[in-house]
């Protein structure tokens, strides 16, 4: 019983991170119908930004919480700027090109980010220093770490914030309108290019937050770390219903639980990819639009 509770907490922790990354896939897909395959590598860059930023802030002898907060913000802002730059230079020129061109470009951007990091910073893994208090509380055999709670709580706060932006603000309304029919939105006086740019910025900033939180639980980073995590977050987005914000959150937690419960149920954690892809296939067979995805309204 204690093991299950323990693993549930671990699942929530990992799921929070997957959810944060999955949001970026789903938001970009929602408005451009583009799978941004570079997103996992953008997450990796966010971790490297976190590595250097935390080093710089620690050298200034700030209190640890302040180092954490400034690292988080720095990574979110710089990653958002990077994503906007990628959108402008790589995707925008292909806005009216066949979709496959944009998808191939996204794969190319991802490879570029990996190899640029490899070439400039080398293959050696690095460790992000611990920035969150890591006290453990024992409750009847269950170990709750304050780190875990922080990761889960900060993630949930960010998701609630994002959900509010999408549901309540003018920008969010514009995003949802674009996802329904991009051609009419300019007639509402909405600068569509700016909304698309903002979508990349927000989606990547949230992934960056996921990266910084992830690095507190799993501190080792390397240039290829975005590949597997990116795939898992992508599966999460598809399982939840790509294009659907709440679906991405749900999918993230499902994948988090798959990852932590696989070794509990199956002989080894090496089965986790198998389980994840099996769930993906099963969901796509039963509900091709994902759990919360709606069938796209047919336009007359």
């Amino acid at each position: 019983m204690a093991v299950i509770l323990q693993q549930t907490l671990n699942g929530l922790q990992l799921g929070s991170v997957y959810a944060l990354i999955a949001l970026g896939y789903t938001m970009v897909y929602g408005i451009l119908r583009l799978i941004n395959f570079a997103h996992g590598d953008i997450f990796m860059i966010a971790c490297y930004i976190g590595f250097f930023a935390s080093g710089a802030f620690l050298a200034r002898h700030l209190p640890t919480w302040a180092v954490f907060a400034s690292t988080l913000l720095t990574s979110m802002v710089l990653t958002a700027l990077l994503a906007m730059l990628i959108e402008r230079s790589a995707y925008k020129p292909l806005r009216y090109a066949p979709r496959v061109s944009a998808v191939i470009t996204a794969l190319g951007v991802g490879l570029f980010l990996e190899h640029f990091t490899l070439a400039t910073l080398g293959p050696a893994p690095r460790a992000i220093p611990p920035l969150l208090p890591a006290a453990n509380y024992n409750m009847g055999g269950l170990t709750i770490s304050s780190l875990q709670l922080m990761i889960i709580v900060i993630s949930i706060i960010l998701m609630l914030l994002l959900d509010t932006v999408v549901q309540k603000t003018m920008t969010g309304m514009a995003m949802r309108a674009i996802s329904f029919d991009k051609t009419v939105v300019p007639l509402m006086g909405v600068p569509v290019d700016r909304i698309i740019s903002l979508t990349f910025a927000i989606g990547s900033a949230v992934a960056a937050a996921g990266g910084i939180l992830y690095s507190q639980a799993y501190p080792i980073i390397n240039p290829y770390m975005g590949v597997r995590i990116g795939w898992w977050a992508f599966i999460a987005a598809v399982v939840g219903g790509i294009g659907n914000i709440r679906g991405a959150m749900l999918g993230g937690y499902i994948l988090g639980f798959v990852e932590v419960f696989t070794p509990t149920i199956l002989p080894s954690s090496t089965y986790r990819d198998f389980v994840a892809f099996t769930i993906l296939l099963a969901v796509l067979i039963v509900r091709p639009t994902g759990i919360l995805g709606r069938v796209a309204a047919q336009k007359v």
């Binding site: 309304m173 009419v184 007639l187 309204a297």
Partner: peptide, 27 residues
């Protein structure tokens, strides 16, 4: 210039009020 496009072009996934509200975006 206000333009009511052919086929109406309303946003079916937004509420009626949100449709109206979005039109004030740049005012």
């Amino acid at each position: 210039i206000a333009h009511v496009p052919e086929g109406r072009g309303i946003f079916a996934n937004l509420t009626v009020y949100e449709n109206l509200k979005l039109a004030t975006y740049s005012r």
